[in-house]
Amino acid sequence: MSARLEAVAAVVRDGDERRTANLVKEALAEGFGPSVILAKGLIPGLQQLGELFKDGQAFLPEILISVRAFRAGLQELPPELRDNIDTQKGTVILGSVEGDLHDIGRNLVGMMLAGNGFHVVDLGGDVSAETFVGAAREHEADIVALSSLLTTTLPAFGRVIQSLEVAGLRERVRVMVGGAPVSRALANEIGAEGFAEDCIAAVEEAERLVAGKVHV
């Protein structure tokens, strides 16, 4: 990777919004292609932040400033690339299940997935199984990502999975779950292929699911 693109990655990782925008402009002026800047500068910056998060060296504020810097850099790229950035890896339908309105964790998951090349359709909170199914069909989703904060709303996970089966979508749509009371064991129990502890793990899990791997 060139020093210029390494610098772009570093300022995204460090959450420096202004310098990210400036360095992307400079990279464009130096003749780097927009897709190269995205793939070898901006996205690696978010990935580096993800590594820091996993190592316990970054927390939620650092994620948010890093995503903001990433977006500032993205704004400097041509609109046709910006508009297509989120279709590279697959489409994720995201939402808090019926009876659950929380949004903080879900927002973070959405931001990180979008920043890492997924097209995210965030349906918001209190989303019925039918709405998940409708959105999965309409957007030709690869993944339906379900979030729940409370034990009382966990049964809704099963209802969404069942509705996807009834709609004949289960073969092609992977289901990923997360939230405070959710565990890998619960995901296995209800037949969800994916589980993520946090927004960084959600990106890895989504990448694993679209790559067709099976968790062991």
Partner: peptide, 8 residues
């Protein structure tokens, strides 16, 4: 479920 976490 008014005591569930709201959307702020």
């Amino acid at each position: 479920k008014a005591f569930n976490m709201p959307t702020w």
